[in-house]
Amino acid sequence: MNQNKFKLIECPRDAMQGLHDFVPTELKSEYLNLLLQVGFDTLDFGSFVSPKAIPQMADTANVLANLDLSNTTTKLLAIVANLRGAEDAVKHEQISYLGFPFSISETFQQRNTNSSIAQSLITVEEMLSLCQKNNKKAVVYLSMGFGNPYGDEWNYEIVEKWADVLITKGVEILSLADTVGISTPEKIEGILPQLISRFSKTEIGVHLHSTPTERFEKIKAAYKAGVKRIDSALKGFGGCPMAADDLTGNIATEDVIGFLNSKNENLNLDMDKWNEAMILSGKIFG
């Protein structure tokens, strides 16, 4: 696998999903169409989950119908939380990746997907099989990968154990997710080099949440750890509505871009389109 090129995953879905006021489908589509022109590897654009759970994403199929993929190399990723969502997502040819949040905290797995870790493992197996039949790839997020606020046991060995289980099942892309922003540079540098070296044939990334003051040091730690796949969202909007914390948003994409530019990484992004998206974001996020 080519681990040399940096893969930036822009996550407007994660940015928008917790917004209280419904963003009109046309506005979502306009925003996503701009982001598709920037040159990100992947756009985490929507989710096929219960509209009761995440009302903001109820129009994902309609948004998808409005996206112009004729002039972009960016691939689309949709989040699913169960088999039904995966079955809905694979029907859409335009989607390349299905993302599933697999929590290594039993409490959060129940809160987030209404199922146990054991049941979620079965869902992952079923999703992998669906992906294979429909020419898609699965991205599994090891959610609560840096600890959890519920008192569930966490250590590096538990993270590595679940990575091993999932990769053995056939997961090719694994993203270590910090759902509540409790990762630290020490934890990032403590666990990721080990995972990257042990599972060298697997694409391993990070989906970090952070307060604005800690973003930069987390990006730096991930880079130092050898990560080549980073999830982020424009201006750091968003976070997880299932783990309420107003302070903890996504890592800001502009911080990631700035840092990687300082390391002379060739990102090949259209910054004019990026600036247009930054301006338009004001209409969505206020």
Rank of each mutant, 00 (worst) to 15 (best):
G46C: 07
I196Y: 02
L260Y: 13
M57D: 06
K7I: 06
L234T: 06
V90Y: 03
A86I: 10
D41M: 01
D41L: 03
S232A: 15
D231G: 01
A138E: 09
D272F: 09
A222K: 00
Y156E: 14
N66G: 11
P241Y: 08
L195T: 02
V171T: 09
E87M: 12
L280D: 11
P24G: 10
F199L: 05
M242F: 15
M57P: 09
G151H: 07
L77S: 12
T123G: 01
L142W: 09
Q110C: 00
K169P: 02
N114W: 04
F237Y: 14
D41N: 12
L247C: 03
T74C: 10
D44W: 08
Y223F: 14
T179L: 07
K91Y: 07
D41Q: 11
K5L: 05
L192S: 07
P12V: 06
F22D: 10
E87Q: 15
A61Y: 07
E125N: 12
V90E: 01
V180N: 09
D14N: 13
T179Y: 06
G236M: 03
Q110L: 13
R215W: 00
M271T: 07
T248E: 04
G239N: 04
N135G: 13
P185H: 08
A118Q: 14
E276G: 02
T211V: 15
E10L: 05
Q17I: 11
E87A: 09
C131P: 12
P212L: 09
K187P: 07
L260H: 03
V165P: 05
Q132N: 15
R215P: 00
D270R: 04
H207T: 04
L34F: 09
T211L: 04
M127S: 12
G236P: 05
V171I: 14
T42I: 13
R84Q: 12
M127Q: 08
F102I: 05
M242R: 05
K91P: 06
T211Y: 02
N268H: 11
Q109R: 03
S143W: 04
P51T: 13
S210C: 11
K235I: 00
L67F: 10
L247Y: 03
F108G: 03
N66C: 14
V165M: 05
N261T: 05
N82D: 15
S120L: 02
F6T: 01
N266W: 01
L43Q: 06
S143T: 15
F237I: 00
Q37M: 08
S70N: 15
T123Q: 12
A243K: 03
E93N: 14
D231K: 02
N261V: 00
A252Q: 01
F45Y: 14
K28N: 12
L247H: 10
G46K: 07
